[in-house]
Design a protein around this nucleic acid. Structure first.
Lengths: 202, 202
DNA sequence: ATAAAACAGGCAGAAATCTGCCTGTTTCTG
DNA sequence: CAGAAACAGGCAGATTTCTGCCTGTTTTAT
């Protein structure tokens, strides 16, 4: 993997929503430079239209916008595309804002000004999710949700088991294999599908 | 059919975790005055012990604690009790903190100093939601056996989920299918494999 | 620096699961 | 009792997961 010769045919398309046209344009430009197809919308209403008419794989939206807020917009968007991953960003977000966003199934919440590399890596993660990975959004939301599909709940539990074992063994995969008595290849696959990364987080 | 008599009304028991003993004591006192059974722990390690040895229905934990943080503690706790509702509280929480907490399935994130009424109403909501929900003993036995292979533990969890849902819906498989969003045929197979029998009355 | 150990992923056949269609049984309702 | 609704399982093709073998990369130890 010396260089990014991974020219995938699948066009990963992002819907970028922000009422600040300068920021919107700048971010869109940056993302396009990084091989991400970007559809822009300067308001939630416009974004809803885009969502209805175009094939969108993910949403990145500002929290505070005149008219419909990012939270309201996301609630609407979920009616159209229940599982679409949504990333929020905002300056001056309160704890309550973040809680509300995450309850709506946000994948992440970035602070404004958004660090381009952070946004990009978040989106790249979503992009890889696209190829056979699991909706990480569903995973963390569903642990305590009694409305979540059976499958997601089980996957969430698998994720918890693996992460716990990883933590317990200081990130040593070999120990996890031994402890959980799971095939090495299976564990590797599960970790990738469930979006588990080893390394002690801080 | 079902006995709605609420005969053996188990008290709703809360595990309150905070390294600040003054705050811990004050909150515990307030909650006890409001008919909530409170188990206190002044560290995450102690809390884990309490969780293993006592019947706990919900957790309220500080985010920042010396040693194991509230986040790490929650990850641990979820292994023992995957579905237990967790409420965080903290002063000076960053956006990243809140995101991490919600990803761990937090029910809510309160800001310190916690407004007693807010905490109380949050807990009351949990209490009503939790009536007769989960057989904590089953969770305890099946999930805590940290020597069992991964596969076995996942199967035990599936069994638990299905049995819980069956119980919740009075043994009506149709409702379970709808609730868990699982294919009818798949559910039938799983029930047979896992040795689950529906008792319309118990 | 070099060797050894640990780790991740491609590949492919094997195994298991999922799920639509159909049938027969049991339970409910009037 | 008759009809309707709910339920369980057989069957089979589609899909997913599992897992051994092999290769290349990263980390650790000497």
């Amino acid at each position: 993997m010396s260089e990014n010769t991974h020219q995938d045919e699948l066009p990963f398309t992002l819907l970028l929503v922000d009422d600040d046209l300068d920021v919107l344009g700048a971010n869109a430009r940056f993302l396009r430079l990084n091989q991400i197809e970007v559809v822009i919308a300067e308001s939630a209403d416009t974004a809803i239209e885009r969502l209805k008419s175009e094939r969108i794989d993910a949403i990145v939206t500002d929290l505070r916008m005149p008219g419909m807020s990012g939270l309201e917009f996301t609630a609407q968007a979920r009616i159209i595309r229940p599982l679409i991953p949504v990333v929020f960003f905002s300056g001056f977000a309160t704890v309550a804002d973040v809680v509300a966003a995450m309850r709506l199934g946000a994948v992440d919440f970035l602070e404004k000004p958004v660090e381009p590399q952070h946004l990009l890596s978040t989106l790249k993660a979503l992009e890889s999710r696209y190829e056979g990975a699991i909706d990480s959004r569903a995973l963390h939301v569903d642990v305590t949700s009694d409305t979540a599909p059976f499958r997601y709940r089980v996957l969430a539990y698998e994720k918890l088991l693996i992460e716990e074992s990883l933590m317990k063994h200081d990130g040593h995969v070999g120990k996890v294999i031994e402890s959980l008595q799971i095939n090495r290849r299976t564990l590797n696959d599960k970790m990738r599908r469930l979006g588990i990364t080893r390394h002690t987080h801080g």
